[in-house]
Design a protein around this nucleic acid. Sequence first.
RNA 1: GGUCCAGUGGUGGAAUUGGUAUACACGCAGCACUUAAAAUGCUGUGCCCAAAAGGCGUGUGGGUUCGAUUCCCACCUGGACCACCA
Length: 815
Amino acid sequence: MYDHQALEKKWQKIWQDSNLYKTVEDFSRPKYYILDMFPYPSGAGLHVGHPKGYIATDIFARYKRLKGFNVLHPMGWDAFGLPAENYAIKNKIHPKKATDENIATFKKQLSILGFSYDWEREINTTDPSYYKWTQWIFLQMWKNGLAYESFEPINWCPSCQTGLANEDLENGLCERCGSEVEQKPMRQWVLKITDYADRLLDDLEKLPDWENSIKDMQKNWIGRSYGTEIIFKVKNSKSEIKVFTTRVDTIFGCTYVVLAPENKILNELKDKIINFSAVQDYLEITRHKTELQRTDLNKNKTGVILEGVYAINPFTGDELKIFVADYVLNYYGTGAVMAVPAHDERDFEFAEKYGLKIKTSIGQKINGRMISGAKSCFTADGYLVDSGDFTGLSSEEARLKLTAWLEKNNLGSSKVNYKIKDWVFSRQRYWGEPIPLIHCPKCGIVAVPEESLPLTLPKVESYEPSGTGESPLVGISDWVNTSCPKCGGPAKRETNTMPQWGGSCWYYLRYIDPKNDLALVNKEKEKYWSPVDFYVGGAEHATRHLIYARFWHKFLFDIGVVNYDEPFTRLQHVGLIMGEDGRKMSKRWGNVVNPSEIALKYGADSLRVYEMFMGPFSQAVAWNTNGLIGARKFLEKVENLLSNFSTDLEPEIEAEKILSLLHKTIKKVQSDIESFSFNTAVSALMIFVNECTAYKQTTGKLPLNKDNLKIFIKILAPFAPHLSEEIWQILGEKTSVFKSSWPEFSEDLAKDKLINLPVQVNGKLRAILVVEAGISEEDAIRLAFENEKVKTYVAGKELSKKIFVYDKLISLVVK
RNA sequence: GGUCCAGUGGUGGAAUUGGUAUACACGCAGCACUUAAAAUGCUGUGCCCAAAAGGCGUGUGGGUUCGAUUCCCACCUGGACCACCA
């Protein structure tokens, strides 16, 4: 047993007093920038799941320092956002005060775990000297036409009283409070992320060290699809209906056309629609539906025919019925689709319900014969049937030829569509960065001059949303009423604030140069430290933070602020730690485990080792206090083995086997840290300690001399820094183990002299030969045949095949 | 419905350019120490069989191979993300 509390406290103080983790600006050394996704400092404090990623990056940072790298490993706070604001409303406390208190709690909790952050670089997104630059970036985007004002309907959360981006929804519900989101036309600021959609997608190729799962999620989210835009003329009218389809090859099966309820063309056709009042009734019903009701997959598809108007199929000249139906979304493609019930399930469902014609235009070739006229809907590619001049072509060929025909006749063109929408970037709430724009009745929208940034948040009496869809800032007339920077006349400030995701889009750049008041980041420093070499955090950020940050970074690259157009070279996501009951840790289930309590009771080192040992890093695992005790026992064994070293006999013997094991362990731990396989690294350390303990028990001596024991402490140190530092000093060292260097292993020593060589007969394991490594095929086979066990299986049989895999196995086949 | 990932002992998991399946840890059982318990140490622990020998065994079924947890095909189950995206 060792007194972890005293020991950990002692070393944390010494490390802090000696500034051990201060980043040195030595540009001559190779750098390594390893970053955690910075936390939102909530009132609830940390639970044991939060530090999992921080422990991993801490181990990695310590390892890289030992390897001789100049390491940047900072921490900060993503502190704007709704929870602090809601807390402020409830308790009448300024959100800044609540935020500062939470940060203090978080920082204390983190410090107990012994992380090696350079706290001199701490940043806070709510600090005006920080958000000055968030505002500055916004202004650059605005000046470059990437931020625009829009009045389109957006997602509105009635409970949070704010507009939301598409990314902020979960199954049509507000991700934060679970309320049903309404579509509400709002004045808002939007960032043109769609301008970067292609680069965001294509440049994923530049990121081989990102996990595929995250890249796939981003690809999905961006959702690029290649297709064709087709013009359907409206009979006896100048109006035309544009549709987007990826399956132009099915167009000869098109039997009607469907418009989204919000499609503007409805207004154009108004006078021709005989049953317009029925149509209006339908639009009214749709308007009152929530997004959730409209997109519910189980719902019955509904729609109304537009009597008296017909669309013309550009290929066949057929007159097609036109419907309005809310299964067509106005915000994707053109807000209108050509319906091919024979080859699209949604259209099929709709056509069946309303008794519409179903016409096959794609068939399959089976055994060289065309099979067409499938009874239900056939959605795969095939060969065109009943398709005029295009009959017989494959779907793929047809798409090219049909599109070419449309282009030639000015009836359409090839077109790319994206699922990703422009980013709704304004919130009607208080606790966010003010958008630095001014509305002047004469000059229009004018930027706050850069030299007067930051535009700070004014103090308000009440943080309640105004209830009118505007932020509480509208009530601060002193602040709102200002003069136009251009003409000097009276003008009003923009009262929307930025969403929580703003500050986190570029924070990793600020750590490089956190106190610079003249620039976002000094160019020379940026060139040295950027990009982030390794970024670790939760997978829930795959389609928000990580897309947003890549977008901003590319923009910053385009305007020359950064020197490379991708911000994060390697990305690793951390798996959740679930409660002991297998459920997500939450107050609601009463299964939250507090890391500070665990660290005080069992030691920070035990917690660190356990969290790394639990299972594969990226996988979700349930917390288990017994498992934690196992990690604690391992450290006690280490302590027991080495801390009373000075009273032990100085070992003269170098037990050969254990020396070899030591070098194997260095090799294994090193490659496991590099690949983030901490669970097997810990296991290798345990195996080594078990062997030493067993040796000591039988001989009463340690199997290794002091220098070799020090090597072991070096590789243990990143995992259990406090205990390792203590033993390091007991072994006679005066400076920190973290000022030493990572040990080199000897390939020669790490190799086994004797190996097990399994012998299989007819695919079944029959014997294991212990032989010298590097044994020749001839010798190995001879030994195999001399083996009694093998003899019983091969005796009297004919040998038909023998396989020898060098230092791996022998496989004999007999008949 | 789409995209992706995963199914191995009582539990967390290990092993993949195809080569001894179950490392390491937890749990459990037995033993030692103890008046006793805890702690600690030792031993055992995939299944069938009293044991040995042997057989079976990595979700299910098939295939390729001297050899498959690993590769291929089909299916089942679970998870993550997205979802009427035309």
